[in-house]
Amino acid sequence: MYKLGQYVPASSLVHECDPRIKIVAMVLLSLLILRLNLLGIGLVYILVLGLALLARISWRDLWGASRPVWPLFLALFCIYLFFTPGAPLIHIIPDRFYISQEGLASGSLLVGRFWLLILAAEMLTMTTSIAELTVGLQKLLEPLQIIGISSHNLALMVSLAFRFLPALQIEMNQMRDAQVARGANFDSMRARLRAVKYITMPLVFNIIRRSEELVTAMEARGYKPGIRSYLYEPALDGKDCLALVLIGLAVFAAWWERTLIIQ
């Protein structure tokens, strides 16, 4: 079942915060993270982990949710570590193949940044249900109405994309099981890669068929593009406004403090 950053219901200040504030905070933090140096990133880690503590999300869950992307991080780190020219730190093959100080710094910064981006996104999705996220997004995108783009349609698209994730996973597992039942072997990485072509095509066709049936079911329940209402209607309160001001100030201060920004 779909787990990456799945919503963890709980009662906390972070959970109860207006989804619009959380989305805006996530976007601001993401922009900031891309500009921060190692010290700045360290400080944002403390902030995110502090928020996780406040939201009663265990660090183990946060780590577990981001575990699938770690092989990619490791590969990126190794590329930076071994192929960035600079002052040699450790020689593997004397004068030809070495780990440079710059490579270590750039690799650490890159992985630190990407992981922090993922942790920030996880904090949003683990403390905000899809319904809240959809409504929050819809409200934030409402100004797009001026140029003829329906925020309701965009929000529905996002929510349907989330809805299809578990369906996709179930479908893929069923197809894999059907192939195993017919003697397919998924033990080695090579066999798994070979099986991709046998799974991808039927998966795509099935998803298209499912989408068509879903559209019919949606129409049968009175769906038409445009304005609609939601079970959850967010309302900003004092705590939300305070959270927005605090986040805004923190981001502004970090941006202003030159020692935290890459020069």
Partner: peptide, 17 residues
Amino acid sequence: QIVGMTVEEDIAFGPGN
């Protein structure tokens, strides 16, 4: 036929329309 990520969201889809 399922549109929502939770039972209540799914039922709310029609009235929301």
